[in-house]
């Protein structure tokens, strides 16, 4: 009875796809709204003035920025994209993109709720910070022309009329009229959302497809060795594409089966890179840079996980 089975599979696929989409879409919308309001109320001059020039400082700032912008891995992409249009240095944006989904109050709290105060919690925060900082630093040599996707690079940032200074160094755009400003921000947010949502849809389709076709046991059976367990958990994080605000509770399920270091790998790698965020990166960066953004954190997390497995019991 091949037909019912196929139908069954399709039904499962649709349910998982819609599940990922419905779960992620509020976060993407929230990120787009933040981005829309940045567009209207934060000027390029302010970004240029506030952002550190030196790569190391920029990467440091980027890795910490999530404490101010609590976004998960879906919301972070439109915000990063908008800030790039406003002239944010490349290392800052890269570090922000990778770190913010973990280094923000919401995710730290949810990790605390799942694992309590312990090596998993501070390990997650510390290693995410380090890896985001390191990858951000590596991007100091990247030029905008070879980094950004065509849609973004073409961008002549809407550079507006003489800005009006407000407190805190934030510079208001010309829209002093709050109502007109809010309406423009909503339109900018909508444009951002429509731009990024297609990548979210493609990513969700792929993730749901993988989950429907590849049995979880195949991933889990990869092994319990010091290397293979880390690889298995990283692959799982990549395929599951769960929002970083809740992945700690999902990771909890694997505590008995996997070593703490591989759980840590799951919690550090998943928020940085998974199927749907990789798809969304394509809306910001050129393909080669997206590859770097996947492979650099992947290799660092792998090395770290294996090292911890071999040397520290945790």
């Amino acid at each position: 009875m091949p037909t019912p089975l196929l139908l069954e599979r399709f039904q499962t696929f649709v349910t998982i796809f819609l599940g990922i989409f419905i779960e992620a879409v509020p976060f993407l919308l929230a990120g787009s709204l933040v981005s829309g309001f940045i567009e209207v109320f934060v000027s390029r001059e302010a970004v240029l003035r506030l952002a550190p020039r030196r790569a190391a400082l920029a990467a440091l700032a980027g890795a910490s920025l999530g404490m101010v912008f609590p976004v998960c891995e879906c919301g972070v992409v439109p915000v990063t994209r908008r800030l790039y249009r406003k002239g944010m240095p490349i290392p800052l944006g890269i570090a922000f993109l990778l770190a913010a989904p973990v280094i923000n109050p919401v995710v730290i709290l949810s990790t605390y709720a799942a694992f309590g105060w312990g090596p998993i919690l501070w390990g997650r925060v510390a290693f995410t910070f380090l890896i985001a900082f390191a990858v951000g630093l590596l991007f100091r040599w990247a030029t905008p022309q070879e980094t950004f996707a065509a849609t973004l690079a073409l961008q002549p940032t809407a550079e507006p009329l003489p800005p009006r200074r407000l407190a805190l160094g934030i510079v208001a755009g010309p829209a002093v009229d709050l109502r007109a400003g809010a309406s423009r921000a909503l339109v900018a947010a909508g444009d951002d959302f429509l731009d990024m949502a297609r990548y979210l849809v493609v990513g969700s389709l792929l993730a749901a497809g993988m989950q429907t076709v590849v049995p979880q046991s195949a991933l889990l059976a990869i092994g319990a060795g010091p290397v293979t367990s880390v690889v298995a958990m990283m692959l799982l994080a990549f395929v599951l594409s769960i929002c970083s605000t809740v992945d700690a509770f999902v990771a909890l399920a694997f505590v008995g089966t996997f070593t703490p270091a591989s759980i840590l790998a799951f919690l550090v790698f998943g928020p940085m890179v998974d199927i749907k965020s990789t798809a969304m990166f394509l809306g910001v960066f050129q393909r080669r840079k997206v590859l770097y953004l996947v492979l650099l954190p992947a290799s660092m997390v792998l090395l770290l996980g294996v090292f911890l497995n071999l040397n520290v019991g945790l």
Partner: peptide, 9 residues
Amino acid sequence: VSCCVADAT
């Protein structure tokens, strides 16, 4: 389900 059906066990 702890988050969405993507993590259904």
